Simulated scan of single mutants.
Amino acid sequence: MSVHVSLSEATPVAAEGGDGGFIAPGPGSFELPPVFEVAGFGVTKPMLLLILSAVLILAFTISASRNAQMVPGRLQFAGETVYGFVRNTLARDNIGSEHFMKFVPYLFSLFMFILVNNYYGIFPFLQFPTMSRIGFVIPLALISWLIYIGAGMWKHGVFGYFKHATMPAGVGGPILILLVPLEFFSNILVRPVTLTLRLFGNMFAGHLLLILFATGGAALLTSGNALYAGVGILSFALGIGVSFLEMLVMFLQAYVFTLLSSMYIGEALADEH
């Protein structure tokens, strides 16, 4: 497992005054310079990775579904496994057997898109999880928000959905004065925010930790002090361990984002809140 971090992301640099110190990575490490410009607009590495992810997902799904056989080959088996996981475990179990197939294409695309963009963080030379940029996460959360709000309005009507989302069944009386605003805030306003922060925060923190272990280890190894060099080797070893942990986190974050999206859709379509 590689913990290489490109020099464009973070490097041990001399502190101001030329004393030769180490500046720890921070949010600035995620502000990468443009790779090239088009009509004065800078195209950055994360933008290119987003485009690459769409190409990779299309290539995988087309290749896995082309010439499908009764006894699947490895690629077809892999495609059917991922699709079946999203279709059965995420969509049908949370939305219900009546309407779940309408949302499988979106949930499958969402899961694959987040998964691929998360795993960029551990591939040498790519090594940047694009979901660590909040500007890429917000649109995904808003799309899920619009879909489950739209699904609820389709099922219950506009006013019927807001009643469904803010007034739990069997509850009445003065308590609704307090309960309705809280339910509106929780079910309508907060959900896209929590979806965004959960995915962004985990990807941002994990990548920042990998940069710290890699650049800190490099600074210690090149310090000229034997004791520091030993600590630098330990830093690289810990970075490798964190890389394996990040592999699990990257999958879980794609899973949780898709799971919550399907649960919100299921709640919007349910007969009772």
Score class of each variant (00 low, 15 high):
Ile95Gly: 05
Glu246Ala: 08
Asn88Tyr: 14
Lys102Ile: 07
Ile175Arg: 02
Leu7Glu: 13
Phe257Met: 06
Arg87Asn: 10
Ser6Gly: 10
Val242Asp: 08
Ser235Gln: 04
Phe113Met: 12
Phe184Asn: 01
Leu178Asn: 03
Ile175Val: 02
Ile177Leu: 11
Val171Asn: 06
Arg87Gly: 01
Thr81Tyr: 15
Ala237Lys: 00
Gln253Asp: 13
Pro12Ile: 01
Phe22Thr: 04
Phe159Pro: 00
Phe244Gly: 02
Gly241Ser: 00
Arg133Asn: 15
Ile177Cys: 08
Asn117Ile: 08
Thr81Arg: 06
Val86Cys: 05
Gly152Ser: 00
Thr61Tyr: 12
Ser109His: 13
Glu31Val: 15
Glu37Gly: 11
Leu220Thr: 04
Val35Glu: 14
Phe100Arg: 05
Ala268Leu: 07
Phe185Asp: 12
Ala219Ser: 05
Ser6Ala: 14
Met131Tyr: 12
Pro124Arg: 08
Trp154Asn: 01
Leu176Ala: 03
Pro139Gln: 06
Thr81Met: 14
Pro72Ser: 00
Thr89Trp: 13
Gly239Tyr: 01
Leu49Ile: 07
Ala54Cys: 15
Ala24Ser: 12
Gly239Trp: 01
Leu48Ser: 07
Gly17Met: 06
Phe128Lys: 05
Val71Asn: 15
Pro12Met: 10
Val82Asn: 09
Phe162Met: 02
Leu58Ala: 14
Asp93Met: 10
Phe204Gly: 15
Glu37His: 09
Pro168Ala: 01
Val190Phe: 15
Pro124Val: 01
